[in-house]
Design a protein around this nucleic acid. Structure first.
Lengths: 111, 111
DNA sequence: GCAATACTTAGCCTTATGGCACACTATTCG
DNA sequence: CGAATAGTGTGCCATAAGGCTAAGTATTGC
């Protein structure tokens, strides 16, 4: 378990949901209120808010309330964790002592 | 929901678990049998196999059985989906008509 | 061919996830 | 101040996730 990371768990979990990925996408264009963000998603506001909270809990966005409006903004630096993990992954497979890859998956086995 | 993608759902879900991320890491060094892979993880084989199946179902690895041994190999091209998503994300936020970001999260609001 | 090896299958359990309705609070607008 | 707006909080529900044990199957080594 040398490479365990709760942060990575959280980020990947947050991005595993299509609603949350779309929220991240929209916030890429700039901050937005919860209400505006929720527009277009086929779910109730309380349900939508759970996604917002999940994103916030996992550090992908930050939110702040001004008056009765809560505004959300993307935390781009958090997405870098994913980049970093991918980079390390590449490092691993580039480092391999190229044991020739004679492994094949032929259709011999389907179950 | 213009950007919905089941494939992306699957890949992120698969990577959200530390056991599965570690499996991907190990397979980065080359193919390995289920038994060898399982070594070192604090769980029973049936539980471990669920992770293997999840990774396979989501396209991150392919497996094939020869005799009584099932060998797993990484499908690197599948990880590219994550790269692509990140790239698109960057595209989005670079395209924004830089509405000045006067938004701040001050500690004014903590629930 | 019998035992050991390497999974597999099945069923069970607990917790987490994602959605809902309904009721409530806090702001802002007229 | 009273109504409309923008969230919030609570509780409920169904399904999925991740783990276990126990028992079964298929190969391989002696």
């Amino acid at each position: 378990m040398a490479h365990y990371s709760e942060a990575l768990d959280g980020v990947f979990t947050a991005l595993a949901d299509p609603t949350r990925r779309e929220v991240v996408r929209r916030l890429g264009r700039g901050p937005m209120s919860v209400g505006d963000l929720a527009r277009g998603f086929p779910m109730t506001l309380p349900s939508f808010m759970k996604h917002v909270r999940t994103l916030e809990a996992n550090g992908l966005i930050r939110t702040a309330k001004a008056g009765r409006v809560r505004t959300c903004a993307l935390r781009r630096e958090r997405l870098a964790l994913v980049d970093d993990w991918l980079a390390e992954q590449r490092r691993v497979w580039e480092a391999r002592t190229d044991r020739l890859e004679q492994f094949v998956t032929d259709p011999e086995e389907q179950q």
